[in-house]
Each structure stands twice: as structure tokens, then as C-alpha cells.
Simulated scan of single mutants.
Amino acid sequence: MTTPTPLPENPRTDSLIEYPSLFPIKVMGLKVDGMVHAVTSIAEQFDPTFDAATIELRESTGGKYLGVTITVTATSREQLDELYRTLTSHPMVKVVL
């Protein structure tokens, strides 16, 4: 039986991200009405300073899918984890990177 690896005492010191920092997230889903609005609304829930003017859109070659890149101000690992969970659980979203 193996011994579990102990968790770090302070997760902030083991993070590769310095908080606060600008953090890009790519969200992909079908190109449908409301997709960009849904992603924007979620970003605003987790980052009150989110600027929708920074959103980048990229259609798939066939035009069926849409990539939406948002850049949020990350303030903690917990914030990012919850943001990813909320995005991935949205019915319009297929992939979050």
C-alpha cells in the first residue's frame, strides 16, 4: 500500500499563477445565438472588472463551432476552479481550455 502524497501546506506558494493576474480562458461550443452572451455573463459573475471588449471570437473552418476567448482577472485558485465548473456545466459549452 502506498502512502498518499501530502498536500502542500500553503497552496498559494505552489501555484504557477501569481494572483491577481490576467488569465485567458478559451470556451468552445456550437455557434448559436446567445453563446457569447452566456459566456460573458458567466465571466462577469466571477470577475466584476471583466471587460467584454477584450473577447476574441474564432469560428471553426466549417462555421459550426465558435471559440470564445475571455480574459479574466484571476484572484484565486478557488475562483478559477469555480469559473471552470460553471462554464463546463453550461449547456451551450462543449469544451473549456
Score class of each variant (00 low, 15 high):
Met1Phe: 12
Met1Ser: 15
Met1Pro: 14
Thr2Trp: 12
Thr2Met: 12
Thr2Phe: 14
Pro4Met: 07
Pro4Val: 02
Pro6Phe: 04
Leu7Phe: 12
Pro8Ser: 09
Pro8Glu: 07
Pro8Asp: 06
Pro8Met: 04
Glu9Thr: 11
Glu9Ile: 11
Asn10Phe: 10
Pro11Arg: 07
Arg12Thr: 15
Thr13Asn: 15
Thr13Ser: 15
Thr13Met: 14
Asp14His: 15
Ser15Glu: 10
Ile17Leu: 14
Glu18Ser: 11
Glu18Cys: 02
Glu18Trp: 10
Tyr19Ser: 03
Tyr19Ala: 06
Ser21Lys: 03
Ser21Arg: 08
Leu22Glu: 10
Leu22Ile: 08
Phe23Gly: 05
Phe23Asn: 01
Phe23Tyr: 15
Ile25Phe: 06
Ile25Glu: 01
Lys26Ser: 04
Lys26Asp: 05
Val27Thr: 00
Val27Glu: 03
Met28Glu: 14
Met28Asp: 08
Gly29Ala: 04
Gly29Gln: 00
Gly29Trp: 08
Leu30His: 15
Lys31Tyr: 12
Val32Trp: 01
Gly34Phe: 00
Gly34Leu: 04
Gly34Gln: 03
Met35Lys: 05
Met35Ser: 07
Val36Ile: 09
Val36Arg: 05
Val39Thr: 03
Val39Gly: 00
Val39Pro: 05
Val39His: 02
Thr40Ala: 07
Thr40Leu: 00
Thr40Phe: 04
Thr40Asn: 08
Ile42His: 03
Ile42Pro: 03
Ile42Val: 07
Glu44Asp: 01
Phe46Tyr: 14
Phe46His: 04
Phe46Cys: 03
Asp47Tyr: 06
Asp47Ala: 03
Pro48Thr: 12
Pro48Gly: 09
Pro48Tyr: 11
Thr49Lys: 11
Asp51Phe: 03
Ala52Gly: 08
Ala52Tyr: 05
Ala53Phe: 13
Ala53Pro: 00
Ala53Tyr: 11
Thr54Phe: 13
Ile55Tyr: 08
Ile55Val: 09
Ile55Pro: 00
Glu56Ile: 06
Glu56Leu: 08
Leu57Thr: 06
Arg58Ala: 08
Ser60Cys: 06
Thr61Met: 14
Gly63His: 04
Tyr65Ala: 04
Leu66Gln: 07
Leu66Phe: 01
Gly67Ile: 05
Gly67Ala: 12
Gly67Arg: 09
Gly67Cys: 08
Thr69Val: 13
Thr69Asn: 09
Ile70Ala: 02
Ile70Cys: 05
Thr71Ser: 11
Val72Gly: 02
Val72Asn: 05
Thr73Glu: 13
Thr73Met: 12
Ala74Val: 01
Ala74Pro: 04
Ala74Arg: 01
Thr75Gly: 10
Thr75Tyr: 11
Thr75Phe: 09
Thr75Met: 13
Ser76Arg: 03
Ser76Glu: 04
Ser76Met: 01
Arg77Met: 15
Gln79Asp: 03
Gln79Ala: 02
Leu80Gln: 10
Leu80His: 09
Glu82Met: 13
Leu83Tyr: 01
Tyr84Gly: 02
Arg85Glu: 10
Leu87Trp: 02
Thr88Ala: 13
Ser89Asn: 14
Ser89Tyr: 05
Ser89Glu: 08
His90Met: 03
His90Leu: 00
Pro91Phe: 04
Met92Phe: 14
Met92Ile: 09
Val93Asn: 00
Lys94Ile: 11
Lys94Tyr: 09
Val95Ser: 09
Val95Met: 14
Val95Thr: 13
Val95Gln: 10
Val95Glu: 06
Val95Asn: 09
Val96His: 05
Val96Gly: 02
Val96Lys: 07
Leu97Cys: 12
Leu97Pro: 06
